[in-house]
Design a binder for these strands. Structure first.
Length: 923
RNA sequence: GGGCGAUUAGCUCAGUUGGUUAGAGCGCUGCCUUGACAUGGCAGAGGUCACUGGUUCAAAUCCAGUAUCGCCCACCA
């Protein structure tokens, strides 16, 4: 083994071997354990959030595989309609081309090429991270089977009357020129203006004033609304006003949507361009007047003067014209909510178009119950509130998109405007008896990405094809065990999967949903390309120099103005670039950070710390290797009854318990912590040091053999426990233990998960005592500023039988670890005024000063100790002085306090005596 | 407007059903190249558990309120 841990070569080597030897395939035996990978978008490369999530999933998968479960990690990628189209469009533009020059077929072909490229990048990254995926079952949301599932779903929902098409006001992105769902709209507070405009009364009796943030939409006004109880305008209801800039007169109506307190209490109503106004218009029977083209330019329904202007130019001109006409009352700054597309960032227009919808009323209420009843459990549990809130406020789901990349809607139009839904054109013709001579054209729209994602659970298991369902284990693997995902897609994906899988299979897609946090940068900022603070997980694995990192972060910026700031920030945060940590260290960092909070700040220092941890393990393994050799250890008739061995095995068992419990609760952080604590602070810091004398004890071969075996066996089990967290290094070291321990199994990947054995209280007591004695001596040595390496004598006073026994049994160990030349029991009568005294319970450890130390030093040390004890005593006595504490607290608690009081008091007495002696000596 | 969450050491975070002097990692200080490991060892320093009040023998922990920050949802033009 190399002296230093070097992850790069070994990580690549092991992944290949595992994959080639089919380590990741479901075993077909045991209780199934299945996790669906939330399919990453084929928009490029995986980010830190993916790496984090995949680490958690892989950790669960590997653990359960080792536990003997029939483990399936169903992986794949998502076509991600809008996002992928945008990526490819940008590429075409970067090459100097224009998307509009391509036909639909050409463009889709181009996206398929990109999909191949991005898809293989993603799977390559997952392999580097160690994701133990059965790649033979990898799927894509647009492959043949999934397309079949999409068509089947659409047709069946349509036949059930749950899908309909019609003209509705939808969220329209005028730049991408597609509808998007409510969920894809992000509402941001932005600084805008509020204009107050005069609408003259038709009867010439004055005017009314309306306030609006969007004056350009007035061209589509159909009425003005006031509150029914608003006395100021009671006489106006039913009358008409002149709509400025147009020839139209529009009525005044009463509707309690209007808040009389806001502005003037008069609202202009534009049903075609505002969701609220749409509802008002419906109530009062007004036909909406659409004034925009799909690009959001003013159309032919508006006066000639404004036609062709885009929405922003139109606003400007209308405001100017109103001013000129003296109809503008005022203009003031106003903070308002602006809807923007989550992908494009463009301002979204409510726009009247024909779209396809899924009716959500029945679907929603039915599948809320699924979660309320616990058939699907959220972890942490309070996410049920989020889910419930959404399910109780469902709007119909707009599923059609005016894009090219995606599942084409299985509907055909004839020239008379009839629409027929079916699996294919032939089926439609036959079913509706449409002659071949009659032209039919397939609907040009595609389904939104989440429509197919919603089918991910059952469609990846072969649904709806009975043969494939049989072959792919539909019955066996559905419901899956747990979905591991982030909270930002509970609505987009989790809820819709519960609905769709439930509706079509009567199953839940998963029993549990573990919601993890989002990875943010060191400062808690969300990582995003535009902020230039993204990290590529591969760069943490392999390392990256500062300059390439800056180049990477600034190369494809949408706003070049940010470049300097990003460069500066990057130089500040990574002055020396990023060192290579390896995939195992990165994975361990992720699991250690995975508490149940919402935000996870990624700090490079943590990653470095865990790389050091793995280096520590590496060197411990080297030490073990040096001691046990390469050959099979000779069989042992029986282990010698050694408290040190018993203790480390007991501590290991405790650790196994902790990890099992932590993982059962998805507390990856606690599991990581338990591993770190055990491996570093128990096994390395104490056990290896305690084992060293036994390993070299030539006088006792049985003891040597027994210790070697414990050394190797405990390490081997610890490696198995660590394997799901750090798969590569554990495999590498574990392979070296196979021969010495005569392990038949080929890979740690499929080795058995350790089972917790018994806790050995006696051994734990012994070693606890031993640690206290050694630490006490070391501490005294440091405080007295004695050279750490210099051997010195130790005298022990007030040892009881148990102390004496332990002093005898552990004599050599104490001497070695505390660097003593001798340990001698002395009578209580022996004067200790020439010694430093370290209390260890009732035990007095005396270090002869012999002129080594100034008595002043020792007096200070003792005084400090006394202060510490006094502080403890004060707290205890305060409690015990409280009569109600004595009366009300459980007897055990009171007893504990009494014991504690005695201990503190005894220590103080001892220290006082010693202080007194030394003071006398001094004077 | 409604809902959820956070506030513990310089930084990042643990802290179970209330019960030792509130823990860890990183950073910091001192000493140490001791034959596994300086990516290290040993020993330390460092906290008014955001604030106020309440419940209790006992509160970081339970309750109420306040403050600050964050997220989600929502039709006030």
């Amino acid at each position: 083994m190399e002296k230093n841990y070097q992850p790069d070569a070994l990580e690549r080597r092991w992944y290949q071997q595992w994959e080639q030897n089919g380590c990741f395939e479901p075993s077909g035996e045991g209780q199934p354990f299945t996790i669906l990978l939330p399919p990453p978008n084929v928009t490029g490369t995986l980010h830190m959030g993916h790496a984090f999530q995949h680490t958690l999933i892989d950790c669960l998968i590997r653990t359960h595989r080792m536990k003997g479960r029939d483990t399936l990690w169903q992986a794949g990628v998502d076509h991600a309609g809008i996002a992928t189209e945008m990526v490819v469009t940008r590429q075409i533009e970067a090459e100097g081309g224009k998307r509009d020059d391509l036909t639909r077929e050409q463009f889709v072909e181009r996206v398929w090429q990109w999909k191949q490229e991005s898809g293989s990048t993603i799977t390559g990254q997952m392999r580097r991270m160690g994701a133990s995926v059965d790649w033979s079952r990898e799927r894509f949301t647009m492959d043949k089977g999934l397309s079949q599932a999409v068509i089947e779903t659409f047709v069946r929902l349509h036949d059930e009357g749950k899908i309909y098409r019609g003209p509705r006001l939808v969220n329209w992105d005028p730049v991408l020129q597609t509808a998007i769902s409510d969920l894809e709209v992000v509402n941001t507070d932005e600084q805008g203006k509020l204009w107050s405009i005069r609408y003259p009364r038709s009867d010439g009796q004055g005017e009314i004033i309306v306030a609006t943030t969007r004056p350009e939409t007035m061209l589509g006004d159909v009425c003005v609304a006031v509150h029914p109880d608003d006395e100021r305008y009671a006489d106006l209801v039913g009358k008409t006003v002149q709509l400025p800039l147009t020839e139209r007169e529009i009525p005044v109506v009463a509707d309690d949507y209007v808040d009389p307190e806001f502005g003037t209490g008069c609202v202009k109503i534009t049903p075609a361009h505002d969701f609220n106004d749409w509802a008002v218009g419906q109530r009062h029977g007004f036909a909406p007047i659409n004034i925009f083209t799909p690009e959001a330019r003013i159309n032919h329904n508006a006066p000639e003067h404004y036609r062709g202007l885009d929405r922003f130019a139109a606003r400007k001109r209308i405001v100017e014209d109103l001013r000129t006409m003296g109809l503008m009352v005022e203009e003031k700054p106003h903070t308002m909510v602006v809807p923007r597309g989550d992908r494009s960032g463009q301002i979204i227009e409510p726009f009247l178009t024909n779209q396809w919808f899924v009716k959500m009323d029945e679907l929603g209420s039915q599948w809320l119950e699924t979660v309320e009843s616990g058939r699907v459990e959220f972890v942490p549990g309070n996410w049920i509130n989020t889910y419930r809130h959404w399910m109780e406020n469902l709007q119909d789901w707009c599923i059609s998109r005016q894009l090219w990349w995606g599942h084409r809607i299985p509907a055909w139009h004839d020239l008379d405007g009839n629409v027929y839904v079916g699996h294919c054109e032939a089926e439609v013709r036959e079913k509706h008896q449409i002659a071949d001579g009659i032209a039919l054209e397939q609907d040009p729209d595609v389904l939104e990405t989440w429509f197919s994602s919603a089918l991910w659970a059952h469609s990846t298991l072969g649904w709806p094809d009975p043969e494939r369902m049989q072959a792919e284990g539909f019955e066996r693997y559905l419901p899956t065990s747990v979905l591991v995902t982030a909270f930002d897609i509970i609505f987009f994906w989790v809820a819709r999967m519960i609905m769709m899988t439930g509706h079509f299979t009567d199953q839940v897609p998963f029993h549990q949903v573990y919601i993890h946090g989002l990875i943010r940068d060191r400062d808690g900022q969300k990582m995003s390309k535009s902020k230039g603070n993204v990290l590529d997980p591969i760069d943490l694995i392999d390392g990256i120099e500062l300059d390439p990192l800056i180049e990477k972060r600034t190369a494809t910026l949408m706003q070049p103005a940010m470049k300097a700031a990003i460069e500066q920030h990057t130089r500040d945060e990574f002055p020396d670039g990023i060192p290579a940590f390896g995939a195992d260290a990165l994975r361990f960092t992720f699991t250690a950070l995975a508490g149940h909070g919402r935000d996870i700040k990624f700090d490079l220092a943590r990653c470095a710390g865990y790389r050091n941890f793995l280096n520590k393990l590496w060197n411990a393994a080297r030490f073990v290797g040096m001691n046990i050799g390469d050959e099979a250890l000779p069989p042992l008739n029986q282990m010698i009854d050694d408290p040190i061995s018993n203790w480390i095995r007991s501590a290991l068992n405790r650790t196994i318990q902790q990890i099992d419990q932590a993982l059962a609760n998805y507390r990856f952080d606690l599991a990581s912590q338990a591993l770190y604590e055990f491996i570093w602070h128990e096994y390395c810091d104490w056990y290896l040091e305690l084992a060293k004398p036994a390993l070299n004890d030539e006088s006792d071969p049985a003891r040597v053999q027994s210790t070697r075996r414990t050394l190797a066996e405990v390490l081997e089990q610890a490696l198995r426990l660590l394997h799901p967290f750090a798969p590569f290094i554990t495999e590498e070291i574990w392979q070296g233990l196979r021969k010495p321990l005569s392990i038949q199994h080929d890979y740690i990947v499929t080795a058995a998960w350790p089972e917790a054995g018994a806790i050995d209280a006696a051994a734990e007591g012994d070693v606890g005592w031993l640690k206290n004695v050694i630490s006490g001596i070391r501490s005294a040595r440091t405080e007295l500023q004695l050279p750490p390496g210099k051997p010195m004598p130790l005298l022990v006073q007030q040892a009881d039988d148990s102390d004496r026994s332990r002093l005898i049994r552990f004599n050599q160990l104490i001497k070695r670890l505390a660097r003593l030349e001798s340990i001698d029991l002395v009578d209580s009568s022996r004067d200790s005024s020439d010694c430093a005294v370290q209390l260890c319970g009732d035990l007095r450890l005396l270090i002869p000063l012999a002129g080594l130390v100034d008595i002043g030093e020792e007096l200070m040390r003792l005084t400090k100790q006394r202060e510490r004890e006094q502080k403890g005593l004060d707290i205890v006595e305060k409690k015990l002085a409280n009569e109600r504490f004595i009366a009300n607290a459980p007897a055990t608690v009171v007893e504990k306090e009494r014991t504690r009081q005695q201990e503190h008091q005894a220590a103080i007495d001892q220290l006082d005596q010693q202080l007194e002696k030394m003071r006398q000596l001094r004077s």
